[in-house]
């Protein structure tokens, strides 16, 4: 038992302060428990849970390969279409599932929020952890595909892949925080979001290569997921050359989203328990 008595001071909330970071550290165990809860619930029926994480991208890959790869003949930078689309899909799914989960997190956890205090931002962070585990399972298929088609990733994968995953989180959490703040006030975000995510898929080079866009490629590059997916393909399937320009751009836009996300979230957090 600790001897020092913790002193807490409650004041009207500021939007941003360094105390938040300290507080986040204090509550790290709760973050662990929230993630643990989500993982437990997700994989409760173990076989179905894991299978779902693998099957979903797999089936989508097969369907896309048939329709877009074979029938529509969409180019894929000389990479076999199945592995091309799958490598994009797993990142896309990491992003889209994290985004839709985080946007709903405040509303779905409202029964806890109105009764106990903890830094609310833990909830969206915990949500993304489960999505990461799904991502890991889905990656196994990618490894299999790479063996099958005889691809060896370049060595830079060790450094770049974690960066890409973290970047995906930053983008998803940033956008998710903005959306979840809006969702608290306007509940129809829930209905608009799936549609919005569907549209986003088409402005992200998942089913087609960035090169297809020609001189308008810069428009697509504004979408932070573009840089992430293009670089993921480069290191896993392509030349191994990291495109630092697009990576930096993704990082910049991702950080901007995160900053705006945190500010809107903190603003709404203040009166959150009162309106949920």
């Amino acid at each position: 038992m600790s001897i020092s008595v913790p002193t807490k001071i409650i004041r009207p909330k500021k939007t941003l302060s360094f105390d938040d970071l300290r507080e986040l550290w204090e509550y790290r165990e709760l973050l662990y428990f929230f993630s643990w809860r989500d993982i437990k619930v997700r994989y409760k029926q173990t076989i179905v849970g894991v299978a779902w994480a693998v099957f979903q991208p797999l089936i989508v890959m097969v369907v896309f390969s048939i329709f877009f790869g074979k029938l529509a003949g969409i180019p894929s930078d000389n990479i076999p279409y199945p592995i091309f689309v799958y490598s994009g899909l797993i990142f896309w799914q990491l992003f889209s599932s994290a985004l839709s989960e985080t946007s709903n997190t405040l509303v779905s956890n409202s029964s806890i929020i109105t009764k106990v205090y903890f830094p609310r931002i833990l909830l969206p962070i915990a949500d993304t952890v489960t999505k990461f585990i799904d991502f890991c399972f889905a990656s196994l298929i990618l490894v299999g595909l790479m063996f099958f088609y005889g691809y060896t990733p370049s060595l830079s994968i060790i450094f770049v892949l974690p960066i890409l995953v973290i970047l995906t989180f930053i983008v998803a959490i940033g956008a998710g925080l903005i959306l979840s703040s809006i969702n608290v006030k306007y509940r129809d975000v829930r209905y608009v979001l799936p549609f919005f995510i569907q549209l986003l898929l088409f402005v992200t080079p998942v089913i087609y290569p960035l090169s297809i866009a020609g001189k308008y490629a810069w428009v697509l590059a504004l979408n932070p997921m573009t840089g992430i997916i293009e670089n993921a393909r480069a290191i896993m399937l392509g030349t191994g050359m990291v495109n630092y320009h697009s990576l930096a751009l993704s990082f910049g836009i991702g950080m901007l989203l995160l900053l705006v996300g945190i500010i809107t979230f903190k603003k709404i957090e203040r009166y959150f328990a009162d309106i949920v």
Binding site: T7, I10, I113, K115
Partner: peptide, 25 residues
Amino acid sequence: GITPPTTGEIVIKGKVASLLEVGTG
């Protein structure tokens, strides 16, 4: 700390727990 005050200040010494509702979460 569930909801912040509009004005004023509270200083609390010690660990606080609440039984606002059992079975939360």
